[in-house]
Amino acid sequence: MIGMAVNLTAVTFWICAPIMVVLGFGMVLARKVVHSALCLAGLMVALGVLYASLNAPFLFVAQLIVYTGSVMMLFLFTMMLIGVDTADELKETIKGQRAAAIVVVVALAGLLGFTVLHGIVGPSAGLAGVNNAAGGNAQAVAQLIFGRYAVAFEAASALVITAALAAMVLSHAERLTPKERQRERAERRVRQFASDALPVAPNPAPGVYARHNAATYPALLPDGTAAPGSVAPALEARGQAVVAEPALKLPAQSLHNRLAAQAAELDGRPRLMADLPDAAPALTAKTDASAEADQEVEK
């Protein structure tokens, strides 16, 4: 029975340890910070598994929740705030620093490794007795935390609360301009309507009068052109918005052509349909034609 358990511990260790070392190297060597963070998250999961095999189920769960669950996700959130794809620049600021660092690290690893290679002498005592005496690992840890280490625990809670307050104070950004509420927005729109003849109504949502109601399709104005501001700027910057698609204007153009033909009929003057753009491109030609048609109507 004992031999079985020892073997299982060894199997767990020899599965997790290479994974952890590889992931550790991956964290240091990855160009992108996101890849490093994912490597570290995987490493922490494997470390939690080692905790479980070392008779520390409470720390196993705490490791998963605190480190993998919150600390690494906090890192990912920070990356999203700063910019995910900021690759680390690889130029050395101090000349020869990287080579020196590698020498130091190899020396340190050798020193630590050889020091601890015989750090534990004799068979390990094991925690089964201690855990079973309290009725389980979590109970045993709880008796210690809320007993002998209660003051330290309270201090730690004060530390955590202070850290939360500090984070709020540090990352708080004061508003530079007063917030525009509904009343101010309405007043600004009316003012801009008076001064610049901007529309009073809200901006059209994506997909209004468009060929498709996906968010990447801009709203169309009655003359068939894409309404500015109806597609999120991020989509436009990424080139995902369908702004320059001539097919967007096809229905409006064909409608315009039909109306122009009817106007020509009412005028009595024959108008060459060849003058009018029939199909997709030539947005300028269409606007010229529409201006001409407007003049005809005014006459």
Binding site: A109, G113, V116
Partner: peptide, 10 residues
């Protein structure tokens, strides 16, 4: 302990 030393060095 050796694994911990390696991870610390990394």
């Amino acid at each position: 302990l050796v694994l911990a030393a390696i991870l610390f060095a990394i």
